[in-house]
Design a protein around this nucleic acid. Structure first.
Length: 742
DNA sequence: GACCATTTATTTTTT
DNA sequence: ATAAATGGTC
């Protein structure tokens, strides 16, 4: 195929401009992914560049996967060996090889936000910080901010000598860094930071990579922070063929250290840089694009560009003001129902977006009440469930026996009679003898500090890790996990517990085992427990954007997505914009609004409520100032009782003309009873022989599906089930909570 | 001292 | 929904 097919002039230029620094300013929906993938295909096919000399960096795994897929359809096998991944996965790949050079062992583990929070709580107690004055979350963002500005703990200590409070913070930052290092653990910021340190301080390593990568491409460049900028600058510093794609109007991660000046100053940072603007939008109708343009014009700090579209006029933006957030959610549901009933849209054509995660609660409740299929992106991540985190903690310690945070988490889960007092004594003894906690536990008997019975318990506990870590690398990840569940007594404990959600928890563990089986299969030779954990740590909630039902998500999570119909909810002062006292912050909020608007292809709804629950009480709210920035001629107000464009039409006379379309009776407005769906968890754990390929099954979370395949992987029977509209999920047959429905 | 059940606080946006 | 905090019981 011709790689320039169906491209406009600017897009062609961008594909053909391969040498030297290039900035592609790609407006929302301007086909940037098409341009990037064609450009890569062009390099390989026409310029005979080795795929292994190409590096493409994205922000989310989702974006990386999409890029891989599209490159694959363009050039197939010819793309093997190319490095396509997120900043974090690319950094890890570089880091795993030479971690020793920056003071880490290769088997380091990754701490998530939760681990970070726990550790910081411990350390701030130790430093004598009253969390009433310095909250853990402010501590967390402060430390993250310092890291992203490349300020070391020592440096910050010097900077804050005069201020009592800052000095305390510096102390925690110092302790935090030291603990991570002694635990052989990295947090998310460190992943980039350590990779950068490796490149910056080891010229031979840098030379290897910058000579390897003849062409470097960076997506979503407007969201890069200082360390990320340095990282790609170094990697492209030999051939200087760096192509970045971004849109300053869509920079929405300033709070995470993303530096909009990276894109604004690209031409200064890279000599002889070319700039190509992509301004034609191929996604949305004219009403939507005009609204987006009008809104973003209120920002002062931006590169000049104006989107245009040739798709057609479309429908005006629909505005609706409701009594409270429940009425808002009900309005959303009724509109969706009526649009689906009209036959023109499917449930997965819709996305409901909001500024903060807690808003999803009301929406979810109402969606359940109305019996609408939905899937929530974020807030309740699979890997954040208690039982999964427990298992992960065990596994982490098996992989890296210096990870004391993980050890502490699982010490008494399931309960084995090791309590606070015992821990206190052990920690003290460990410190006095300069031994690790684990070794002290093993040798507890020698110190004569604990009763014999306790020493035996500790010994039993330690044996789990001694035995399993000896088998790490011999047994497959799945086998290790299975053995762990057995040896630790975790599974038995869970099965016998009185936990109301135990069926679901057991099923979650089953899903976890199946994920390990899948990982083992995907990485046949190279499957390691450490690799599996890493996979897990880097995968995020936006990554498996399910296909079934309406998508509920924050606007941040919606970046890079598009939907025929988009609802922007909670458009109220103090919620969206969340902060508006500082002009710079308000501009970022406005960019976020712009991102939301430009996700919509055909219909855009903007809603706000007159009152809303905040923390403990109900507050009256004011309409968002952003709503006034939508052009008058592009908007249309409807009442909360409105039943959607199709139903509005049905009151007019020409409606019956629509031929050949069977219209279902609209069933809006009447919540259906879903209680029969919610408590369908089967009573007993399934036996693998129970299932056959072709069976129809019911799952509490994913609904109904068909068993596609049953296979044995590492002694585990894995069911591969195609859930209707959801996609394929895998379960450990012995653990899955499924009801066979025919 | 450990364990269990009950209460209480917690929510900006995320790799 | 979860986890820390609390209080009662073994």
């Amino acid at each position: 195929m011709n790689l320039l097919n169906n491209l406009n002039e600017r897009q062609k230029q961008a594909v053909l401009h391969t040498e030297g620094p290039l900035l592609i300013l790609a407006g929302a929906g301007s086909g940037k992914t098409t341009v990037m993938t064609r450009r890569i295909a062009y390099l390989v096919k026409e310029k005979n560049v080795y795929p292994s000399s190409i590096l493409a960096v994205t922000f989310t795994n989702n974006a990386a996967n999409e890029m891989k897929e599209r490159i694959n359809t363009l050039i197939g096998e010819d793309g093997t060996g190319m490095w396509v991944g997120t900043f974090h996965s690319i950094s890890l790949r570089i880091l795993r090889r030479d971690a020793k050079l920056v003071g880490y062992d290769n088997n380091f583990v990754i701490y998530d936000e939760d681990d970070k929070k726990k550790l910081l709580t411990e350390l701030s107690q130790k430093a004598g910080i009253d969390t009433k004055y310095v909250s853990i979350s402010s501590l967390r963002s402060k430390i993250s901010d310092l890291k992203n500005r490349l300020i070391s703990p020592e440096e910050y200590m010097r900077m804050s000598e005069t201020d009592f409070k800052d000095k305390k913070i510096a102390q925690v930052y110092l302790d935090y860094t030291a603990t991570l290092k002694s635990n052989n653990a990295l947090d998310f910021d460190d992943i980039i930071l350590k990779a950068l340190e490796l490149l910056a301080e080891h010229e031979d390593v840098l030379d290897y990579y910058r000579r390897k990568f003849k062409y470097v491409m960076v997506d979503e460049y407007q969201d890069t922070n200082e360390p990320q900028f340095q990282f790609v600058r170094l990697l492209s510093s030999y051939y200087k063929n760096i192509c970045v794609v971004g849109d300053d109007d869509q920079s929405i991660y300033g709070w995470r250290g993303a530096d909009i000046t990276n894109i604004l100053n690209f031409e200064k940072s890279f000599e002889n840089a070319a700039v190509i603007k992509l301004e034609q939008n191929y996604r949305s109708t004219d009403y939507i694009i005009r609204s987006a343009n009008a809104v973003i014009k209120h920002n002062t700090k931006r590169m000049d560009k104006t989107l245009f579209t040739e798709i057609g006029k479309g429908e005006p933006v629909i505005l609706c003001n409701t009594y409270d957030e429940t009425a808002e959610a009900e309005f959303v549901c009724r509109q969706i129902k009526s649009l689906v009933d009209s036959g023109e849209y499917k449930y997965n054509d819709f996305a409901v977006m909001y500024r903060t995660n807690f808003q999803s609660r009301t929406l979810e409740d109402v969606f359940v009440k109305y019996g609408l299929k939905y899937n929530m992106v974020g807030s309740l991540r699979f890997y954040e469930r208690k039982e999964i985190k427990d298992i992960i903690s065990y596994l982490r310690f098996i992989v890296n026996d210096r990870d004391e945070e993980s050890l502490k988490r699982v010490l008494n889960v399931p309960p084995r009679g090791i309590g606070d007092k015992t821990m206190e004594k052990l920690t003290e003894t460990a410190q006095n003898n300069e031994q690790s906690l684990f070794v002290t536990m093993m040798d507890a008997a020698e110190y004569n500090i604990l009763p014999e019975k306790m020493c035996a318990r500790l010994g039993d506990f330690c044996n789990i890790f001694l035995e399993l870590s000896a088998e790490d690398g011999i047994l497959s990840p799945v086998e290790i996990i299975e053995k762990l569940l057995e040896m630790s007594g975790y599974m038995e404990w869970l099965k016998e517990s009185s936990d109301k959600q135990k069926e679901e928890r057991i099923a979650n563990i089953g899903e976890f085992v199946a994920a390990a089986a899948q990982y083992t299969k995907d990485n046949s030779e190279n499957a390691t427990l450490a690799g599996f954990l890493e996979n897990m740590a880097l995968s995020s909630d936006t990554d498996d954007l399910g296909k079934a039902g309406v998508s509920l998500m924050t606007i941040h999570a919606a970046k890079g997505c598009e939907y025929p119909v988009v609802f922007l909810t909670g458009m109220e002062q103090g919620l969206f914009p969340l902060t508006y006292d500082e002009e710079a912050k308000k501009e970022e909020e406005r960019r976020l609004f712009y991102v939301g608007i430009t996700r919509a292809k055909k219909l855009l709804y903007v809603t706000w409520a007159n009152s809303r629950w905040k923390f403990k009480d109900r507050e009256s709210t004011l309409k968002s100032e952003f709503i006034n920035e939508l052009p008058k001629e592009c908007i249309k107000f409807v009442s909360p009782q409105d039943r959607g464009p199709k139903q509005r039409l049905s009151y007019s006379f020409d409606d019956t003309e629509k031929s050949g379309q069977t219209r279902k009776t609209p069933s809006f407005g009447r919540p259906i009873d879903t209680s029969s769906f919610r408590n369908t968890a089967p009573q007993s754990t399934a036996v693998s022989s129970k299932y056959n390929v072709g069976n129809r099954v019911q799952h509490t979370r994913y609904g109904t599906g068909t068993i596609q395949n049953i296979s044995s992987q590492g002694g585990v029977t894995v069911l591969e089930i195609m859930f209707d509209g959801v996609g394929v999920k895998r379960f450990d047959a012995a653990l899955a909570v499924l009801k066979i429905i025919d």
